[in-house]
């Protein structure tokens, strides 16, 4: 089995897995970073969203072969103590219900605001459309992204 080296939350990690192994399962089963969630496995729900070189990606559909040598940020590494403006906004508005989708929502929102710190309502909705929240906490997710934008700019 090939050996891969990736940077996760600023630390170099070596893993030996078959080349089609999705990044999601390497994070969860090999690196013990279980904040990144499994929802669908086919890039449809966003629960597994992480940052790859700063871009929001679906880790369930990215193989190790595709991410070798790259730098990845997960929810555990988004900030030191949950103090990223997006996390702060999430706390302020008490967004989660069951909470399962929320890491993915936060990772999508943070990458989006990084690139578009002053988004319109429609832009926020479009950016978050790929992340399913089965509990339907959508109204608070939307407001929290709006609030985070004001914290960033």
């Amino acid at each position: 089995m090939p050996l891969y080296t990736i940077t996760v939350n600023g630390k170099l990690k070596n893993v030996e897995v078959s080349k089609d192994t999705p990044l999601l399962w390497v994070l969860r089963d090999h690196l013990e970073l279980v904040g990144t969630k499994f929802g669908c496995g086919i890039a449809q729900c966003g629960a597994c969203t992480v940052h790859l070189e700063g871009n929001a990606v679906r880790s369930c559909s990215l193989t190790m072969d595709a991410v070798d040598g790259k730098s990845i940020t997960t929810i555990e590494g988004l900030s030191e103590n949950g103090t990223h403006p997006v996390q702060e906004a999430w706390k302020e508005l008490d967004v989660p219900q069951c909470g399962y989708c929320q890491a993915g929502q936060i990772m999508t929102a943070s990458a989006f605001l990084d690139k578009n710190p002053k988004p319109s309502e429609a832009e926020i909705k479009a950016a978050m459309h790929g992340n399913i929240c089965r509990c339907a906490a959508y109204t608070r997710i939307f407001k929290a992204v709006e609030l985070a934008a004001t914290k960033i700019s």
């Binding site: 279980v34 949950g82 909470g99």
Partner: peptide
């Protein structure tokens, strides 16, 4: 939510 902090930090 009493688990808020844990949820948003994964």
């Amino acid at each position: 939510n009493v688990d808020l902090e844990k949820i948003i930090t994964g």
